[in-house]
């Protein structure tokens, strides 16, 4: 474990807790894309299948349980909670996210490190995570102004992946044979997707005005 990875995990944890807190306290999910949340639930479900077969540390297992629990709770709130589900803007959140799942699955069947069931699903989860934010970014563009909790959620999510890139550089420099192109490229693509959001987020923060994404 290194400081970059710990910072990344904590930022990731903060992003899901910020979102869960928002939805739980104000009983609203306005501005949140259910599609992105569903994709994230699939990402964690396919990534953490090894939770039963291999144990690394209490920390590792605990965090997996938290991520699984929080992502499925958010989906549950947005789909079934009587108050929250009414605040979900279904008309705007129309990204056909299933069009993201299939190509990621095909790609994982083609490019992976080992052709085993767990490995292919794990690789699928990496590819899917890289694009999972797209429905949320599209929704933010459509709804124009961003309420600051949703903005913080996307910002923290981008920051977590940014810290992970620093973690991979650190591990590459300090651990011999630590080379994982698939993880690195998927993580880099994901972080780049956030780049323009970060640009507008900082612009709004610097000029101290509401965050407006260009149409």
């Amino acid at each position: 474990m290194n400081i970059f990875r710990l910072a990344g995990d904590m930022t990731h944890l903060a992003s899901v807790l910020v979102l869960l807190l928002k939805i739980h306290t104000i009983k609203s999910c306005a501005g949140v894309s259910l599609k992105t949340q569903e994709l994230y639930a699939i990402v964690f479900a396919t990534r953490y299948l090894d939770i039963f077969t291999s144990f690394y540390s209490i920390y590792n297992t605990l965090m997996k349980l938290i991520f699984l629990g929080s992502s499925f709770s958010i989906v549950w709130y947005m789909r079934y909670h009587k108050t929250v589900r009414r605040t979900y803007d279904r008309e705007q959140d129309t990204f056909r996210h299933w069009f993201l799942v299939l190509p990621c699955l095909l790609l994982a069947l083609l490019i992976h490190e080992k052709f085993t069931f767990l490995e292919v699903l794990w690789t699928f989860s990496l590819y899917l995570e890289a694009v999972a934010i797209l429905p949320q970014l599209v929704l933010l563009q459509r709804t124009r102004n961003i309420d600051n909790l949703t903005g913080q959620y996307v910002f923290l999510l981008g920051g977590y992946r940014g810290f992970y890139i620093l973690n991979w550089i650190y591990r590459y420099l300090t651990e011999p044979h630590f080379v994982h192109w698939i993880t690195w490229i998927a993580g880099l693509v994901q972080t780049l997707l956030y780049a323009d959001f970060f640009y507008y987020y900082f612009q709004s923060w610097k000029n101290n005005k509401k965050l407006q994404l260009p149409a």
């Binding site: 990731h12 090894d50 077969t53 690394y56 590792n60």
Partner: peptide, 10 residues
């Protein structure tokens, strides 16, 4: 347990 270090990350 297969502690291949690729999977120690979240």
């Amino acid at each position: 347990n297969n502690n291949d270090l690729t999977k120690d990350e979240l």
